[in-house]
Design a protein around this nucleic acid. Structure first.
Lengths: 338, 338
DNA sequence: GCCTGGCACTCTGCGCGTGCGAGTGCCAGC
DNA sequence: GCTGGCACTCGCACGCGCAGAGTGCCAGGC
């Protein structure tokens, strides 16, 4: 177990390194933070911290920089979440309130996050699985061809073309439309399967095939995961990453283009609160020198999707966590209102 | 007017520079291209080309590199469009045919373009203004609140909530829905306004306000320009841009995040064929050291949207133009089929 | 026992001077 | 109008030395 002072030394190292981007030495530490001890003492502590793997030297006779493990300890034990100031919160709220539709909400959120954190922002569209159905619409495109349109409470619209096994009359269509809506409107997606299970039985024998097809298409749409979309922004902030450019940002840009990778990344965060994954904790190789700060957000109490930022492991964790948390909270509010 | 040989020298310079990324000197030129003359002669030609502003020296006693003006001449007079090979064309077709919906088509197109050209790809979603209406659907959300859903032939779905001035009965709704569709289905957006103009007159006086409101919402949706979306990809290719990194790519990344800028950029290309805008020809400052190769594409004979790539002015123009043209052609085919 | 000041050592980064090579411009000759 | 030759100009890579920052260790003091 590390002594209290050593933890303070680690905290000071992280703070200084994040601020200056340069390895920090014992002397500079004692000057900037009043630790109440001399550089020599700090050096001993640093040696101990290095033995434990919390900090490292880029090369002999340079200052120390935190390791992933060091950042982890910092985030878990040494730093809180820095709350946004009141003016900041107002600005967030104002900016998000101007949104006109779901796309706009997401777009604004991305922009906002990128600006606040000066990092790359990733926002997942509100996912289907947790939301509720606002309306289901059925249109006849042809006698044996329907279009199914699903409208969710978060304003998302999904459409699917359904090829029917047999022609489906206008009357049956109206009937199905009405029955469907009376059963599933304002119900949660998760509840839909059991609610529509017995619907085919209410129809004439010749229509049952079509009804079943429509229902299974509907259920497929509900669970469809690969339709999960996300938006990213602030990639220009990658240019502030480091000095050794191309090598560092190339894999990051590549990873950011893989929606799958990003969705997995956000999905991994199970915590109800803000989740931080540091450096090698990220499964994807290209992101081994980045940290991901993410959190769920939702229109009610429940999380329907995630958002977060990707930045260098050397980032301002308290500030970033604060910004991410605040933005998530306000997006949730906006979604609940609309 | 430049002599034939001088044009050849310019062409050789462009080709070599694009290949090597290094200023090209007179000796190297005569070695790689058999111009039939000595380096000294080439030097005279180069001096002339420099006087005319087609090439420049980064510094005294270095080789020459083409200027924007030089590239312009090269593109206009000296280079054709390099057609794709048969296997390449097949690969494009196969890749695009796997798409399941519009989003997927666009996503695949972006990927493909980025891979083929090894540059940043930009694809605009098929725009509304040129396409036709497949179906208009009206749903009652509340007695005086409707949802208008517009489905286009390119598979795009737009929805709007309409607040009515007065409650609108189920019968009137069905009536309006039927009339609307019989008039506008399969008609081009541009024709819709004149086709629905007199619709309110067919309704009872008390419903006319609502009908007008619905119609104006529909028309707004049709012309809505800010709803134009686009997708970009291949930003990782920016890392191959040059040596002087952060400075060069930062503004480019920033520009790429401004949808407005990109839409304008693509919109500027008026030509029916492939359009090339080189360096300072791009209005946006951040793109002054890039070239944009773009072309319209569409499901029928007509262009409904644009796509293109953004890359360094030092790019393989014939190859890029060929790839862009080929991809546009096949996307058009795919859209027409679906 | 822990902290402290001192000291010798190590390593990086930077400025400077040098030599090399690539490329040019010009000129006289064919 | 083309060619070969020649002197000249730069930029760049390399090597050197120096200063500065930082460390580890040790002996002494609270």
């Amino acid at each position: 177990m590390l002594s209290e002072r050593r933890l303070q030394v680690l905290r000071a190292i992280v703070q200084d390194y994040v601020g200056t981007e340069e390895p920090v030495g014992s002397k500079a530490l004692t000057e900037r933070h009043n630790l109440g001890v001399s550089p020599a003492t700090v050096r001993n502590d640093m040696a101990a911290l290095e033995d434990e793997g919390y900090i490292a030297q880029p090369h002999t006779s340079a200052g120390r920089i935190p390791t992933d493990k060091g950042y982890r300890l910092f985030v878990d034990k040494l730093a809180g979440v820095k709350p946004m100031t009141a003016p900041e919160r107002r600005a967030i709220q104002n900016f998000l309130e101007g949104a006109v539709d779901l796309d706009d909400v997401v777009a604004r959120t991305v922009r906002l996050l990128a600006q606040l954190t000066r990092q790359v922002a990733v926002v997942q569209y509100p996912s289907l699985t947790r939301s509720t159905v606002r309306h289901v619409e059925l249109l006849a495109l042809a006698p044996a061809r329907l279009m199914l349109v699903l409208i969710t409470d978060t304003g998302r619209v999904e459409q699917r073309v359904v090829d029917c096994p047999a022609p489906f009359g206008e009357a049956s269509l109206a009937d199905l439309r009405a029955r469907l809506n009376s059963r599933v409107a304002n119900r949660r997606f998760a509840d839909v399967p059991s609610l529509v299970e017995d619907l085919p039985e209410a129809f004439e024998h010749e229509d049952r095939g079509t009804v079943s097809t429509v229902l299974s298409t509907l259920l497929e749409t509900l669970v469809e995961e690969n339709e999960e979309r996300l938006m990213i922004g602030g990639t220009a902030n990658l240019t502030r990453f480091g000095h050794d450019f191309p090598l560092t940002i190339r894999p990051v840009l590549e990873a950011l283009e893989e929606q799958v990778v990003l969705l997995k990344l956000l999905g991994e965060a199970k915590d109800p609160g803000v989740t931080v994954r540091i450096g090698h904790e990220n499964a994807h190789e290209g992101l081994n020198s980045t940290s991901v700060v993410s959190v769920g957000y939702g229109s009610g109490g429940e999380a329907v999707a995630k958002l977060g930022v990707v930045g260098p492991t050397r980032m301002d964790y308290p500030g970033t966590m604060g910004a991410v948390r605040a933005v998530a909270r306000y997006v949730g509010q906006i979604l609940a209102e609309s």
